[in-house]
Amino acid sequence: MDAQALKKTANEVRKGIVTACFYAKAGHPGGALSSAEIYTYLYMVEMNVNPARPDDPDRDRFVLSKGHSCPGLYAVMAEKGYFDKEELKTFRHLGSRLQGHPCMRYLPGLDMSTGSLGQGVSTAVGMALSARIQHRDYRTYTLLGDGELEEGQVWEAAMFAGAKKLDNLCLIIDNNNLQIDGSLEEVNSPYPIGEKFAAFGFHVIHADGHDFEALAAAFKEAKETKGKPSVIVCKTLKGKGVSFMENVVSWHGKAPDEEQYKIAMADLERIGETL
């Protein structure tokens, strides 16, 4: 997939996020929109995954440790062909496979059920460890929020991954600098993020989380790093692509109403036309 196509896909993912949250009348659009390029790069370029074989033992694994950002994951899975895009409109409805936070027992292609912050990263560590025991070549990726770094379990997982030199593990931090109650600094700053992971034995890479060239270089560097796990700290903008949601903390966890939905989709249509 070339750069232009990736940008178009990311824009479609954003439409999917806004649509899913609108039809659900709930959900977390802000931190899903900030991860749209990350999701797109992972599923369209980086990861060895095939919607026709979601149980392939050699597939790459993805754990959405920031589970609330799942409208973005669902939207990219729809783009990849795991299910029809129409199903995004069932998000958070009774009986839907698209639960409010991901449940692996409902939807093939989800590698882990997540939602409780700090736990997903540890499960990803378990998957990376399993690859080593079973002599498999797959890589494990996990996306964390920057606010999530306040959970102590993240650092328990990081300590273990560093100590065991899990170089088949790649953490991605969506550093949009906002959490529910305000900016990271206002709440309980996890900064400096890179230095902390370096101290835990990680190879640290910084990237612009909305720039596909930067993401490509970062994931390449992570894959080529041997003897230690990698973390890619992605600078992002919460709510990216929807004018009234950008960098506005209140859009962490609420849905647009009908009028807002129309504006959001118009914003994204306009962006799409420029691509």
Partner: peptide, 23 residues
């Protein structure tokens, strides 16, 4: 056998990841 150190919450989630990968 893996010693997770004094970090029981992490151990349980690692167990989940290992189990999801077929162990």
């Amino acid at each position: 056998h893996f010693n997770c150190g004094i970090a029981e919450g992490n151990m349980m989630s690692i167990a989940a990841g290992l189990a999801a990968a077929g162990n």
